[in-house]
């Protein structure tokens, strides 16, 4: 695996930074190098937040933000209209969106012409989190979905990373949400 770069967009309180952390830990458990850098400042609930994750077989030295992501994870649909959200997305890259709507309903198909249909998925991560965790924090479900859409990581690695971050019932709930999202995305991919 050469360099693979992920940018996560969300809002303060949605676990954008934790998602990056967990992804990096998951990659690490597979024996690869990973770097997660948050781009947050004053932590305010609801403010737009980004975080960046890089994976590589080699040492990662650069410290610049991810400007040409291989994958975008969008935790909040209200950010879809922000110009910066899709900026620099690589041709053939992946997009995973947390929403109850379809891509057509979201009206973003025009922005994503370079993305094959099987690389573009919507999952109701907030709903899954409510169901399995009892809280509307979509990050764990989305990294589960990430594993399915990109095939970059085994689900077991995601599971380990979630358990490392969250102990006990919170960890179990997050893993359950992640697994549900993983299965949903795999199934949707099969249909494409």
């Amino acid at each position: 695996m050469s360099l693979f770069e992920v940018r996560i967009h969300g809002r303060g309180g949605q676990g954008v930074v934790s998602a990056a952390e967990m992804l990096s830990v998951a990659v690490f458990t597979e024996g690869k190098h990973a770097q997660a850098i948050p781009s947050f400042g004053s932590e305010r609930m609801g403010a737009p937040v980004q975080s960046f994750v890089r994976f590589s077989d080699h040492d990662i030295r650069t410290r610049e933000p991810v400007i040409e992501p291989d994958c975008l994870i969008i935790q909040d649909v209200t950010l879809l209209s922000h110009e910066s959200t899709f900026a620099g997305l690589k041709e053939g890259g992946y997009v995973l969106i947390n929403s109850t709507h379809t891509i057509e309903e979201l009206g973003i198909a025009d922005k994503l012409k370079k993305i094959p249909a099987s690389h573009l998925m919507v999952v109701n991560a907030t709903g899954l989190a409510r169901e399995h965790l009892g809280r509307p924090i979509p990050n764990a479900a989305l990294i589960g979905g990430f594993s399915a859409i990109t095939g970059q990581l085994k689900f077991e690695s995601i599971e380990k990373a979630i358990h490392k971050k969250f102990a006990g019932a919170v960890g179990d709930g997050n893993v359950a949400a992640a697994r549900a999202a993983f299965n949903e995305v795999l199934e949707a991919k099969g249909l494409n």
């Binding site: 930074v17 990056a20 990973a34 850098i37 948050p38 990662i60 410290r63």
Partner: peptide, 12 residues
Amino acid sequence: VDGFLLTHAYEQ
């Protein structure tokens, strides 16, 4: 130690 770039970055 550079703030955020190192203090808040996860790496091995």
